[in-house]
């Protein structure tokens, strides 16, 4: 299992860069994780999504898909693609330190 270091702390990740143990994540790691995903600065809107990802994962054991994020996070689908270009749910999951969301819709 690969190990990466964020905010000076070693964490376990899988081959795709997702945390395998979300408890190892701290908010201090997020900016560094974001830069690795080509996001220079995390705004309040980014944080709203990241916190929603954490909350959903804690409650349901899986991260939300783009569809659910668009419906329930308070950030629209359009804005999600602006905040987290390319693959919003995957990128936000990486930054939020949770496994890759699984869901077809």
């Amino acid at each position: 299992m690969p190990t990466a270091t964020f905010a000076g702390t070693p964490v376990d990740t899988n081959d795709e860069g997702f945390f395998t143990d979300p408890d190892q994540w701290t908010e201090a790691m997020a900016p560094e994780l974001a830069r690795a995903a080509d996001i220079d600065e995390l705004t309040d809107r980014h944080w709203q999504v990241i916190r929603f990802m954490r909350k959903e994962y804690a409650e349901k054991g899986t991260g939300p898909t783009v569809r659910l994020l668009g419906k329930a996070s308070g950030v629209s689908v359009k804005e999600l693609y602006q905040l987290f270009p390319k693959a919003p749910a995957k990128t936000a999951a990486r930054i939020a330190g949770i496994p890759k969301p699984r869901g077809c819709i």
Binding site: V66, P88, A89
Partner: peptide, 11 residues
């Protein structure tokens, strides 16, 4: 539509 949406979700 599911294939399209899923593709966009993967970037």
């Amino acid at each position: 539509l599911i294939m399209a949406n899923g593709a966009r979700a993967e970037g």
